[in-house]
Amino acid sequence: MSSSKNIVFDVVGTLVSYDHLFNAIDSRLGPRLRAEGIKPQLLANTWFETAEREYTYLSMSGKYVPFTSVFRAVFVRVLWMAGIPEPRTFASTEDLEYLMDAHGALQMRPDAVECVQKLRDAGFTVWGFTSGDLNRVAGYFREAGINMPAENLISCDSMGIGKPDPAVYQPLLDRLMEENEGKKPWFAAAHMWDVSAARRTGFMGAYCTVLEKEPLLDLFGDMDVVDDTLGGMANKIIVKQASAE
């Protein structure tokens, strides 16, 4: 049984930073990429964006494939689309394995621990809802020293539906509202497409600009809370929740 106050976090990109992988791309492929006029960070973001699109499109079409499998598969295509004429010569299988290992060793953002603790101290039950592999994502919490009960960490893999399909948010929303006398839970993310979809499903929405910088509210709609840092977002959630009680 959860508490009367619940917050569901997207994990990778929100609590967890991509910086470790960005640095790995720079150290492994940086000189080669710059020789082609490609910034390593641009390639990294293009890789993530392409993988998220293909993951979502596959799910929408009825063929769910775990995100990590999609992420690995599209790497060569991303190099080609970036203008590398012979991507398999440009980057070896060993290069890709090195980068995938880095992806598996991502780290929490500096204020992620503080953010989670603030919310727990204010009486919130914290959940994680990810498109990633549960074992990998659970490892991110362990490495950061955040105790995340296994029952509070959920992956789209177990449902066979990818975010941001409304059907992926609805069961958790229904469960939390049923357990807590109709009180709305929160959903927090640094991906606006994610938190806005959750909010349209019925969650309270909290968005942190740490990843995307621009909220684009005209495009995605209003949020209940917006802040530039995870800690600041947590403070605003606590205040907003208190005012509603």
Rank of each mutant, 00 (worst) to 15 (best):
F141S: 03
D227R: 05
P185D: 03
V226K: 00
K183C: 05
P87A: 04
C156H: 00
H191S: 09
A144S: 13
H20G: 08
S158N: 09
W47Q: 03
D111L: 09
V137Q: 01
P149Q: 02
N152I: 10
P171V: 08
K236H: 04
R34P: 12
S27P: 01
A44M: 11
F71G: 09
K63E: 12
G231S: 15
E143W: 09
L79F: 10
S92P: 02
Q41E: 15
M223R: 04
V113S: 12
F71S: 11
T229S: 14
V168P: 03
L219V: 06
L96P: 07
D174N: 11
I161S: 01
L42S: 14
R32G: 05
L173D: 06
F124T: 02
E52F: 15
V195H: 13
I84Q: 03
V226F: 00
L217N: 10
T56F: 14
L21T: 13
V12C: 00
E36S: 11
G30S: 06
I7M: 03
F90H: 01
M223K: 05
G132N: 00
E181R: 15
F141N: 03
A144E: 11
Q117C: 07
I154H: 12
G104F: 05
R34F: 13
Y169V: 11
M159F: 13
P215C: 02
G83K: 11
E143Y: 14
E36V: 07
V225P: 03
N135Y: 08
